[in-house]
């Protein structure tokens, strides 16, 4: 089974988002970068599948040159090779992103690659567009199941479950297919020192993608109004307990 996983480099903003000058991006100078939890699960699932069924896992990202870090992280937990579609690091809309990924997949296939399964996160952690995977599936005429949280794969088909309020919806499709997955699908492994070193030597193919005209154009980012509460401090340590009890009573959580 050959799996292609698509991931996105995003900042990890901690407790507060700050905007960079121009309001087009988050101020990231002091931040670390990561891939979203959904995508971590996608990478882990790809690695488990090839461990079980053989084949190879390729990880692809569209982003700035620095996104190499996220490809290396993914290779450190078991992906075999990387594809970096290098941009200037500005915001690409979901349709532009999908079109560039489709072009890269077609190019890889022209060079002899064959993918049986394509894995995406259900939505990116930052922009949250909920559509890149679906657009890629449409362009490549692949069956697509979104929001997958349980997966059983065989050599030629997959059984996937999606969680809804009352339980699970079960889907079954033949391969090749495209799935968008959610955190909770598995527990991603941590890389070892050795696997981190090994990942440095794995191959990455770089190219500059074509960019379609924009459809959903980012004009400006802004912060939502803050709730502006300042907590009423009830005390320190055990000494706070009497005030906590009073508050629980005031809120009707404890019977007075």
């Amino acid at each position: 089974m050959n799996v292609l996983v698509c991931v996105k480099r995003v900042p990890d903003p901690g407790a507060r988002i700050e905007l960079a000058a121009g309001d087009q991006a988050i101020e990231t100078r002091k931040l670390g970068f990561t891939i979203g939890p959904h995508e971590e699960c996608a990478v882990e699932e790809a690695v488990r599948l090839i461990e079980k069924l053989g084949g190879s896992a390729t990880v692809l990202t569209l982003g700035p040159a620095d996104a190499e870090e996220q490809l290396r992280d993914s290779m450190a937990v078991g992906a075999d090779r990387g594809i970096l579609l290098e941009t200037e690091g500005d915001d690409w809309d979901p349709a532009q992103t999908a079109a560039a990924i489709v072009a890269a997949i077609r190019a890889a296939e022209r060079q002899g690659s064959r993918f049986d399964l394509f894995l995406f996160g259900n939505e990116s952690a930052d922009a949250g567009g909920f559509q890149v995977g679906i657009r890629v599936a449409q362009a490549l005429d692949l069956p697509c199941i979104t929001g997958v949280k349980r997966l059983e794969a065989q050599a030629n088909k997959v059984l996937a479950r999606r969680e809804i309020a009352t339980g699970w919806e079960v889907y079954e499709v033949g391969l090749p297919a495209l799935l968008t997955v959610r955190e909770g699908l598995n527990s991603p492994r941590h890389p070892s020192f050795r696997s981190l070193m090994a990942a440095r030597k794995k191959p990455i193919e770089r190219s500059r993608p074509e960019r379609d005209p924009v459809g959903l154009e980012l004009l400006r980012l802004r912060l939502p109004p803050d709730r502006g509460t300042s907590a009423e401090m009830l005390g320190e340590g055990k000494a706070a307990v009497p005030r906590v009890i009073e508050v629980l009573k005031e809120l009707g959580v404890l019977q007075a």
Binding site: G14, A15, R16, R227, T229, S230, A231, E232, M233, L234, G235, E236, G237, K238, A240, V241, P242, V244, I245, V247, L248, L254
Partner: peptide, 25 residues
């Protein structure tokens, strides 16, 4: 940072505060 978005706060070790709170409840 959570204190800045909370309505109520207690500064302390949860493993001290919670057992005392449970006992009182």
């Amino acid at each position: 940072p959570f204190f800045r978005r909370a309505t109520h706060g207690v500064v302390g070790d949860l493993h001290e505060v919670l057992p005392a709170l449970i006992e009182e409840i």
